[in-house]
Design a protein around this nucleic acid. Structure first.
Lengths: 184, 184
DNA sequence: TTAGATTGTGCGTTATAACGCACGTAATGT
DNA sequence: ACATTACGTGCGTTATAACGCACAATCTAA
């Protein structure tokens, strides 16, 4: 969600400049105002799919070529650019580091829970597995009736296609990474 | 542009019902209000790409699977569902019948020009060709300095990578089809 | 039957996409 | 030097996406 606008921005700008077209020309070809096109190129706007469709048609290119991420070998995600989701009245902070994207069947989170924090998760889609490594503090996971406690340095893998609960059972704030893998 | 909303609508509804999810559940998974989700499913809204991105992520599916047209063998385009583009103060009406779509390298229009109507077109991208068949009246096309007049039943093919002008040189309203082919 | 929960839709409000217009800058021409 | 054109951005307005709330219909429970 963070990138999609900038991806479109880059693609549109690149495609336009490759063809040496002005914003006016593209506006004429697509039926989208050049003001809007400019804002899209600068990543200042999150256009509707109808607008993107018109642009693709006007430029005679596919929809996907506009939203497809130019294959990069390396991506850096600075900590301060990740906006946390908070749960349990701020006691639990979830950082989505590498969200699910086409091609990959997993996503990676980093989580932080204050002492006593709780987080309950619905059952994921069938066959889904989670891989957790604890870097700080202590974490207790309850899956159905079973309960597992993992501490600093420990890891755990479990099938996440049933409801499960995370709980900071230690005395300090904990921190751990989570990889969620979705079956093909 | 006409369909994109309904394509997304169908895909979303299908994917949701396949998994037996309620709008509330999907709202929870995606962070999009169920009101909006409902409107999208009914084709009443043209969501922003950021919204579509969130839906794709929440449901763990690719962006393209949401906007990809379910392969249909047959498509009917009723005349009254084609909204005309008008030029030359209403003297020229352009009906986009089969717009450019990924996979195909051409698009098909139907045009109608009242007596005396003019329509000038910019140069298309290099290698582009137009195929025109006149079904009613008379049509004169000027490409650079050359001029060609085609009448009912006649056809013409020309390279459209330079500016060209269409003109109804006859005494009655004319009508013709136009196929524009873009080089690979 | 009645009470409770769950589902999808309608309504009013707010946020923002999208537009037309006009301005500042840069490039071009004479 | 000046005028002219072309290009991209800022501003104010309008259209509409997106939200929260609440209602009507359907299903469950007892």
């Amino acid at each position: 969600m963070k990138h999609i606008n900038s991806i479109l921005a880059q693609n549109l700008k690149r495609l336009r400049e490759e063809r040496k077209l002005s914003l006016d020309k593209v506006a004429d070809l697509t039926g989208i105002s050049k003001t809007m096109l400019g804002q899209i190129e600068r990543g200042e706007s999150s256009p509707s799919i109808a607008t993107v469709w018109k642009i693709a048609n006007g430029l005679k290119i596919s929809f996907t070529s506009l939203i497809h991420e130019p294959a990069t070998d390396t991506v850096v995600v600075p900590a301060d650019e990740v906006q946390a989701l908070v749960e349990d009245n701020g006691k639990v902070r979830i950082y989505p580091l590498f969200p699910f994207e086409d091609g990959r069947r997993f996503e990676i989170y980093s989580l932080q829970m204050e002492q006593g924090g709780y987080l309950s998760a619905e059952a994921h889609i069938d066959g889904t597995e989670e891989f957790i490594t604890v870097f700080e503090g202590e974490l207790t996971i309850r899956i159905s009736t079973e309960e597992y406690t993992v501490r600093r340095g420990d890891s755990i893998r479990f099938k996440a296609d049933k409801p499960h609960v995370y709980h900071n059972s230690g005395e300090t704030t904990n921190q751990f990474s989570m990889v969620i893998h979705y079956r093909e």
